[in-house]
């Protein structure tokens, strides 16, 4: 029985880590550009199709596969910024969201038209499908690696944001973009880096998603971005630690419900999860780590 509990705890951590990665990618763009990038899910789909095409040319080396997936999503993110979002940079939040939805639909249909409507198998690193034995207990390599990778990614991001000039600029720009420009830092550069980071994080998440799923289809990006968005909202939209916390909590709670709910009620898992999310928001309208904005506060 304890093995089961332990196994489910590892599952919870792994799913939570995945949601945290997804949420972080979404949050970093939102915090700086005030844009909820609903096309974030499509970055994962892009990685998936990259892995699909790699199968066609027989790329077997797992590291090459990983590099390919991450590279494609990062480049896609940079392209999105340049082509779709730069021109609407100073527009309202609603314009941004609608543009992102539009971009999302375009990308999905490009895949439908030019690649395939049905799910296609993708090539993923073989070592991620194995089991590892730690302390007499068997764990899927994928989950262990996923949790560790998320931790490393978050750490790397923290280092970037604290120790590099561009990182400082990004943190400052989240509150006051204009003054950052007064420091001589180019606005374009800051935003590009934000998108590149979000693409990188999406690519890393994609490797794990596809190692589990083994298949890509044009519309699969919707669920990841929805989870990411909910996680961000729980943690406080615009807060990076909030995104991580929201992702971990959401993922762990979902697994918890899966374990705890009896089979009859199990179908209500999502309903229960979202009801709890609603409750959290009633108590913390700005999210768990979001700043309570009082009327009259002067925001920089």
């Amino acid at each position: 029985m304890t093995e089961y509990i332990l196994q489910q705890m590892v599952n919870a951590l792994a799913v939570g880590s995945e949601y945290a990665l997804l949420a972080l990618g979404l949050a970093i763009v939102y915090s700086i550009v005030n844009l909820v990038n609903f096309a974030h899910g499509e970055l994962i789909t892009v990685s998936g199709y990259a892995l699909f095409f790699s199968a066609a040319v027989w790329v077997q080396n797992p590291w090459l596969l990983i590099a390919l997936a991450v590279l494609c999503s990062t480049l896609a993110a940079a392209a999105l910024e340049r082509v779709a979002f730069r021109s609407i940079r100073n527009a309202s939040l609603n314009t941004g969201m609608l543009t992102a939805f539009g971009v999302s639909i375009i990308i999905q249909n490009v895949f439908v038209i030019f690649v395939a409507t049905r799910p296609r198998a993708v090539q993923t690193p073989a070592f991620l499908a194995e089991i590892v034995t730690i302390g007499g207990l068997r764990f899927p390599v994928l989950q262990v690696v996923e949790t560790l990778t998320t931790a490393v990614a978050i750490l790397a991001l923290v280092v970037l944001l604290r120790s590099t000039t561009i990182g400082l600029a990004m943190r400052a720009a989240a509150r006051d973009f204009t003054t950052v420009r007064l420091m001589g830092v180019r606005a374009n550069r800051v935003i590009q880096v934000a998108f590149l980071i979000s693409g990188l994080l999406a690519g890393i998440a994609a490797v794990f998603i596809f190692s589990r799923r083994g298949a890509v289809d044009p519309f699969m990006g919707f669920v990841p971005v929805l989870k990411a968005f909910v996680a961000c909202v729980i943690g406080g939209l615009g807060s990076l630690p909030g995104a991580v916390l929201g992702g971990l909590l959401l993922g762990m709670f979902e697994v918890f419900l899966q374990v705890v709910l009896p089979a009859d009620a199990a179908a209500y898992r999502d309903a229960i999860a979202f009801s709890v999310v609603g409750l959290v928001l009633v108590l913390y309208p700005q999210g768990l780590l979001g700043k309570r904005v009082e009327l009259g506060d002067k925001e920089a």
Binding site: Q8, V15, Q143, I209, R212, V223, P224, K227, Q258
Partner: peptide, 16 residues
């Protein structure tokens, strides 16, 4: 065992 389609992570179901 109940499952939801979407992110295709069935590790919890497998464990169950």
């Amino acid at each position: 065992v109940n499952y939801n389609i979407g992110l295709s992570d069935y590790s919890a179901q497998v464990a169950e």
